[in-house]
Every structure is written in structure tokens, then in C-alpha cells.
């Protein structure tokens, strides 16, 4: 009788041991890879076997670097830099097509974004180590060069021609375009993946059948690893891809004479947008859309026009204000979870 009980207890112990073993064994199986591209960290978490993960990550970095070699405004050997330097230069079909997409987006967003603001952004120098406040005269002269109507994309001769003094700045689109390229690389194999590229995110497939991804939305008032809310996202048909991008005034800024200047410039004034927003996060179905919309929403603020833009692109957004209020568009309300109680929901009525 007694030995029977001992036996049962021993069996229980064995069961517990097996449970322990099983639990430690069934961790999610993904491969993580990191590289540096376009001056940002590119990280991919690939739900694929090691060899395929290596192959896919190579393809992703190739695609991203290829896009950068065409579109970078800071790399002097890029196609856009050549166009900017000479005012007119040959450009690959990819560069011409992507620039065309950017111009189209600028038009649809009513000039809130303008891809020809390069002369202005160069004056501020936010992408250099020494940003500065330009003089009013400098800015006025640079503002003169801005205008989509003076930009010519000549598909017949394969060239891009700028207006006098005009410069292209693809800054509001670049990372998004790169993530669209990464998506193309991922589609060759049907493995789920998350690709993070300097604060922009590409979601492909789902982490597990019937499960959704969670994307943390950075707390603008805290460090780069802190988030105040998370979005639970499930990329949907037809291509099961989702893109999240955030524009935040905290990303790049400098202080001069006690005034803080951030890097999100209004194409209308040439100065940093004056707004009570600190960041806008956009979930959209393409990288270029999420990237452009997050900047455009930041510049335009939360209003009827902004919401109509989001609606027309099938995109959703989270707005965060300096007073720690936030606003979530209707389509994202169920996916949104607040993780920091010091933030409060903003009441907005159109």
C-alpha cells in the first residue's frame, strides 16, 4: 500500500519533469537577423529554417540597398543625388517609377508633402551632424525652388529634370519604399516575418495560425525601447502584408536660443510644423503609403481632411499629443491596447 503511494508520487514527479522539458522545448522558432542600411538598423525576424532565413535576409538587404542606391539624398553616388547635383540626369526605371509614385502621393495629399523640398531640407541639415537654423533670406530663396509642377519625369528619354535650383528629398517616403522592396523579397517564400527598419515595420503573414502581431507604439516622452501602447495587427488579404510607420518630432531635433526645432518641415513655410502633436503612427497596406501618411498626418494634424485621407487609403492611425493625450481612428480601436495609464484618450468630434 505504502509503496504504491510512493510509486504514484514518483510518477507525478516524472510528469512534472516531462512538462518542464516540453515547455522549454516549444519556444517559437524564428531566426533573427540584423544589418545596417540607409543609416538605420534593419532587423528581420523570420519564421523560417536557418538556411532560408539567411537567403531571405540576404535578398531583403540587397533590395533595400538597391533602393537606397537609387533614392538616397545623402549618398552622393545615388541616382537622386546625381539628379540633384546636375539638375537633370539619367535615372533607372525604378527611380523614375518610384519618384512618380511619390509625386502622385504628394498631389493626393494636397501639397502637405512635397518631394521637391530638397533645397529647404539641405539648409536645415537634419540628416547631417550639424543641423542649424537657416536665415529667413536663405529659406525664402530655397522655398522658391519648391514645386511639383517644375519637376519632369521623362520616361521617353529615361531622365529626370528639375526646375532651377530644385532638389529632390525623398525623406518622407524612403523607408517605406525600402520596406515595399523587402516585401517583394519575402513574397518569394511564404514564411511569416517581421521586418523593422528604423522605426518602420513590415508585417508579413501571421506569427502563428490565427494569431496576430503586436507592434509597440513608442512612448514619445521616454527612451527608444519604451512604448505606451501596442497594436495587435493581422495583415489581411490579398497579400497578407501590413506596414506601420511613425513620424515623431522627437526623432531629430536641435535647440537654438531656447527654441526646439524638429525635423518635420512644412512644405508651405519651410519651417518645422507648429503643432501640439508629438507623433503619428499609421497602419497601411503599403510601405510608401504608411510612411508618407504618417508625415502628412503629422503636418496636417487631426481634422476632417486628414481622416478622409486615411480613409481613402484604407489606413488607420494613432495620434499622440504633447499633453499625453492620444487619438485612435475607428478601425484601429479594437487592435489598440494602452499599456501606460498616464496617457489619456482625446475626445475628437468632426
Amino acid at each position: 500500500m505504502k509503496s504504491n503511494r510512493l510509486f504514484r508520487a514518483a510518477a507525478l514527479l516524472c510528469a512534472a519533469l516531462t512538462l518542464c522539458g516540453a515547455l522549454t522545448g516549444c519556444a517559437a522558432t524564428y531566426e533573427e537577423r540584423t544589418a545596417f542600411a540607409m543609416g538605420s538598423v534593419l532587423t528581420a525576424r523570420l519564421y523560417a529554417p536557418k538556411e532560408d532565413a539567411d537567403l531571405l535576409f540576404d535578398r531583403i538587404t540587397e533590395k533595400v540597398n538597391a533602393a537606397d542606391a537609387c533614392l538616397s539624398a545623402t549618398d552622393p553616388s545615388s541616382e537622386i543625388s546625381a539628379v540633384n547635383a546636375k539638375g537633370s540626369a539619367n535615372a533607372s526605371a525604378f527611380t523614375r517609377k518610384t519618384l512618380g509614385d511619390m509625386v502622385m502621393l504628394c498631389n493626393m495629399l494636397n501639397g502637405t508633402l512635397d518631394v521637391t523640398v530638397g533645397a529647404v531640407t539641405q539648409l536645415w541639415g537634419f540628416s547631417t551632424d550639424h543641423p542649424r537654423l537657416p536665415s529667413e533670406e536663405e529659406l525664402r530663396a530655397a522655398q522658391e525652388t519648391v514645386g511639383l509642377e517644375r519637376l519632369l519625369i521623362d520616361d521617353v528619354n529615361g531622365t529626370i529634370v528639375l526646375g532651377p535650383g530644385q532638389k529632390i528629398d525623398p525623406g518622407a517616403f524612403g523607408k517605406g519604399v525600402a520596406l515595399d522592396e523587402a516585401r517583394d523579397a519575402l513574397q518569394s517564400k511564404a514564411y511569416s516575418a517581421v521586418v523593422s527598419f528604423g522605426g518602420s515595420v513590415l508585417l508579413f503573414g501571421t506569427p502563428k495560425k490565427g494569431k496576430s502581431w503586436t507592434v509597440g507604439v513608442r512612448d514619445p516622452f521616454s527612451g527608444p525601447n519604451d512604448y505606451f501602447a501596442s497594436l495587435s495587427l493581422t495583415p489581411d488579404k490579398p497579400d497578407y502584408t501590413g506596414f506601420v510607420a511613425t513620424s515623431g518630432s522627437y526623432e531629430k531635433q536641435f535647440t537654438e536660443d531656447g527654441v526646439v526645432y524638429h525635423h518635420i518641415l512644412s512644405p508651405l513655410t519651410g519651417y518645422p510644423v507648429e503643432t501640439d502633436l508629438v507623433s503619428v503612427t499609421v497602419y497601411a497596406t503599403s510601405g510608401i503609403n504608411s510612411d508618407a501618411l504618417s508625415t502628412a498626418c503629422f503636418i496636417n494634424g487631426l481634422n476632417g481632411e486628414t481622416l478622409r485621407w486615411l480613409n481613402s487609403f484604407g489606413a488607420e492611425a494613432v495620434f499622440v499629443y504633447q499633453n499625453k493625450e492620444y487619438y485612435v481612428t475607428d478601425g484601429l480601436k479594437d487592435a489598440f491596447t494602452l499599456t501606460d495609464d498616464s496617457f489619456t484618450l482625446k475626445t475628437y468630434e468632426e
Binding site: L6, R8, A9, A10, L13, A16, L17, C20, A22, T24
Partner: peptide, 20 residues
């Protein structure tokens, strides 16, 4: 060793597994 010893051990192991 008594059965109760093993049951206690099993409980802690289960907790460890759950935590893991």
C-alpha cells in the same frame, strides 16, 4: 523519501515549468 516529498518537488517543478 516519502511520497509527500516527491509531491512537493513535483509542485515546485511544475511552477518552474510554468514560469519558463
Amino acid at each position: 523519501l516519502r511520497p509527500a516529498d516527491l509531491i512537493a518537488a513535483a509542485a515546485v517543478l511544475a511552477a518552474a515549468g510554468l514560469l519558463a
